[in-house]
Design a binder for these strands. Structure first.
Lengths: 157, 157
DNA sequence: ATGAGTGCAAAGTGTTTGCAACTAT
DNA sequence: ATAGTTGCAAACACTTTGCACTCAT
């Protein structure tokens, strides 16, 4: 692995709280802190937008060229299982990933435009009534952030 | 093409209303009625469950072995553009297709279980309040049937 | 030291596309 | 006749897997 251990303060921001949190959760989940994982997590913390695994992988590789695509996919899967990252499925496009409860610790939902692909952030409580109704009437535990709603944005209508 | 024109009453059910409707919409959309399209539409009308393009393609081929996968994909795309079929995206799985407003003419929504993959049909008005809210507050035209909600079904919780 | 994690290459899915041949109109 | 469609093969995008090697613990 090519990431120097010991000092990670040479990169991005010395200790983005979300990065610390993610590392802690990894460790307490019984996983090892490797350079590759460190790199993926820091990339997640700094990258803008709603990156796919492939885009993350590319971005990771700009600073850590030896980190393989497959490792990024595996790391994201691990982090998702731990609840550190949220996987968002985008109606026909690649799955995207972001740190769960970024910064402020509160989640949000997404909608994607069928026409232009734009992704729109939505308040996390938007689906609360539906979540409640599905739980009561169908005993179904909705996981609202896991899919992006689909429709047409205002510029594309 | 291997489908005999003239008589389609030798297959499944002589004239499933939905099939007639689909053929009419195809024609009035300026498209040609080909054996392959006929086969796809009849398969859509008869198949159970929530088939993917690949499954439909397989099923079509049991009766019409010369119809190619690619043609099924193209036909489904055409039918979706005409609004004859509804495309449902399934959070990480293959897109599924069904005749829009099957039989009775009313749509329904879907939710899929993250664990077992089961697909649950939901009333079409479930998301009406959210649709309204998104239209008003974000000028976003939600297309509720286009994605399946995601969560955990009662047997998997 | 030792097993979790990695890089790599290769295989899997699901889906799209370029093109020559075909056929519904 | 002539465009719209098809079959085919090949490419594509995204993701997973088997395996030998490496490194965090």
């Amino acid at each position: 692995m090519s990431v120097e251990a010991g000092t990670q303060d040479d990169r991005a921001d010395a200790s983005h709280p979300a990065v610390e949190r993610a590392l802690t959760m990894l460790r307490s989940g019984g996983h090892r802190i490797t350079g590759a994982r460190h790199a993926v997590i820091e990339t997640l913390a700094t990258i803008d937008g709603h990156p796919s695994a492939e885009q993350l992988s590319e971005q990771v590789r700009t600073l850590h060229p030896t980190v393989h695509r497959a490792t990024v996919y595996r790391t994201l899967e691990t982090l998702a299982a731990l609840g550190v990252v949220t996987q968002v499925h985008l109606a026909g496009n690649a799955t995207t990933y972001h740190l769960a409860g970024d910064a402020t610790g509160h989640h949000h939902l997404h909608a994607s435009c069928r026409v232009c692909g734009r992704i729109i952030d939505l308040p996390s409580d938007l689906l609360d009534p539906i979540t409640r109704r599905l739980a009561e009437e169908r005993d179904f535990a909705l996981d609202p952030p896991h899919i992006a709603l689909s429709g047409t944005c205002h510029t594309c209508q």
